[in-house]
Amino acid sequence: MSRIQATFATLKSQGKKALIPYITAGDPHPKHTVALMHALVQAGSDIIELGVPFSDPMADGPVIQRATERALVHKVGLGNVLEMVREFRLTDGDTPVVLMGYANPIEAMGQGRFAERAHEAGVDGVLIVDYPPEECQEFVGLLKAQQLDPIFLLSPTSETSRVDMIVHQAGGFVYYVSLKGVTGSKNLDIAEVGAKVQAIRGRTDLPIGVGFGVRDAATARAVADVADAVVIGSRMIQEIENSSEENLLSNVAQLTQTLRAAIDDIQK
């Protein structure tokens, strides 16, 4: 059983939902990333989504763009990100790590070499925003050969036949983008999200995570009501952005605890 499967199985047996924070590797400085990952886990995160900085983050809103720019000041590349995961794994063998990023850094390293190195470093899943399933069948094969889960996005506009095609290739969990737009957008319609997640659930056994638009305890709780996992990106990055070096870890831990409590509140 993969780490991602084990995590969702454990949560299910406890009647809990997964909390998946996103941070950009190297933001605000590469020296903080591994410590931030551990802090996120200690404060109640179940899976860490680690962003690979890319110069042209087309699908991201201004908050994650700024995180990317801060990381790129320190020239954080895909190789450095894999090193960070390796370091994280020295003291955490259980928490799944999912890399999220864009195609070009993978193409520059080489798809096969990336898959090998990601496996060696202890990565569990890979989500490449601009690799839709039609364009990455070979890549999916390379990932699966290294026991890496290919994670795909589903959007409010994905039709049923497309959902079937995507979940057929996907592993680990599927990531439902809860609204049209870029990361960090507003105006999440929970009823609509719930209906769509329910429809997806009828077509796959994979857990369903929901992200894009989760920005506080209330939205996290509402999403946890309908999904298996809550992904929180831009709001987490804002916390990092607004912290000083001294209170960085404590602020991030506090936000994570608040979200954890909100998500667990659905059981009551």
Partner: peptide, 22 residues
């Protein structure tokens, strides 16, 4: 320049060793 992916298509791209567009 090596090939890569940017702006929705694969093509030759000016980039550094990390695949960042220069």
């Amino acid at each position: 320049s090596p090939a890569g992916v940017l702006h929705g298509n694969r093509t030759y791209l000016m980039q550094d060793e990390n695949g960042q567009i220069i």
